[in-house]
Write a protein that binds this DNA or RNA. Structure first.
Lengths: 236, 236
DNA sequence: TCAATATATTTTCTCGAGATTTTTAAATTC
DNA sequence: GAATTTAAAAATCTCGAGAAAATATATTGA
């Protein structure tokens, strides 16, 4: 039996400067250090990220795939803007796709999938215990992403998983906006545990219901953010 | 009333060389002049497309968004490979998403939507009449895309439509492979007409059924292609 | 005071050349 | 003869400078 974690979990390290700049920029956008709608001046940013202009442009082009950056010909790059309308769309689309993927995953998952799921939940639960200090937030974010990934890992559709990874990334950016408002808002741990048990019991209907509500609750917590705080930059 | 065609129909012309190269490359990949899996050597291609190396790299980076190009760090770019497995995934995912979008569009479409739909069908029908000569194939391809776009135009989800535009593009590449095998394979005109009437009658269930079968039939015609012909280059 | 034009500044876009890395080919060794 | 090592060739990746466009500022005229 293969005891190594699923392939998508293993973080391959960047081999080129373009890749490094791409990841650094993505992180800064998702975590809000680059504000929504902000102009991304190549000549200014290339110093911050320690690369040449052409390299930075290439990294920005890659971020268009993730819909985290937009470009208007001859008018440069911008951080993708945010809106409640957009996040509602993301939420609804994600509910549809992720429930579908989850049902397929539950129908097709084997022993290895169950084992990976248990392991991912355990890692997440450990991170949730000591999540009071904000220094462990990044650890929790990573493990939460992996838990959701492993849940649908047995779904055979590469395209469905590809689209979901984009939507998850988008949702994370919005969710981080609300985390500064309400550090520990809901009993997420119980939601995850119920999801785990429904999946392990192969109860697709129940699992899909829990997952739907789980995703929609995140939307409601973002909904509570004051409108003027949505476009703000955080930290440096 | 707004009598101009929907926004996504209007082809904005490229303002930068990156944009031009991106479109030329995309066309060449979808139409099979650049074979699946083929290596894309920047130094060689920059002459063909009349741009610098950096510009071409940027265009290739943009094509990664469309999943028409893949890149492995330090090992350059390649045309995305094809497989029957992949196209089956594309087909199934597209059936799910496009039926969902169509239902929403039928539920929310107004008079302008109906008018645009009728117009798009008419343009497509005209192109189908004189589609015997292959010189009109590009015209038909364009109008077919627009018809499918307008069908779901009243769906309010930008993300759903974004994902569908990617899948449509992918499907077009596969479909073109079968066109060289069977120029006028099925009675596509009747399928489109039935789709139009079901949509105009607001019969969402019927429309979704027709659309599902319509998309799946394309898969079956690609399925009939000999495996060794799948990775071949066409024309220059 | 406001609008329109002209100028100046900033920024984007583009290219060609040099540094690393990978790939190919030949040579050596077992 | 097959496998490893070494060397040559090719390709990728990267940077900085120059051309084109957009933005900001200043000027002019009513």
């Amino acid at each position: 039996m293969n005891i190594s974690p699923p392939a998508e979990v293993l973080a391959t390290e960047p081999k080129t400067l373009v890749e490094s700049a791409y990841r650094a920029l993505r992180r800064d956008i998702i975590e809000g250090r680059l504000a929504p709608g902000e102009k991304l001046r190549v000549e200014h940013l290339k110093d911050n990220y320690g690369v040449g202009a052409g390299t930075l442009r290439e990294a920005l082009s890659l971020l268009i795939s993730d819909a985290l950056v937009i470009s208007q010909g001859q008018r440069g790059f911008r951080v993708a803007p945010v809106s409640l309308e957009d996040f509602e769309d993301i939420t609804q689309t994600r509910v549809m796709l992720e429930c579908n993927a989850l049902r397929q995953s539950i129908a097709m998952g084997d022993d290895a999938w169950e084992a990976n799921l248990l392991a991912a939940f355990h890692r997440l639960a450990k991170a949730e215990e000591k999540r009071i200090g904000s220094e462990d937030r990044e650890e929790w974010e990573e493990r939460n992403r992996i838990f959701h990934e492993v849940l649908i890992a047995a779904c055979p559709s590469r395209w469905l998983k590809h689209f979901l990874s984009i939507l998850y990334q988008q949702a994370e950016r919005y969710r981080r906006m609300s985390l500064y408002l309400q550090p520990i808002p809901r009993d997420i741990h119980n939601e995850h545990e119920a999801l785990l048990h429904a999946a392990m019991n192969r109860d697709a209907d129940k699992a899909a219901d829990i997952l739907s509500e789980h995703i929609r609750l995140t939307f409601r917590s973002v909904q509570a953010i004051p409108a003027d705080q949505l476009n703000e930059r955080r930290q440096a």
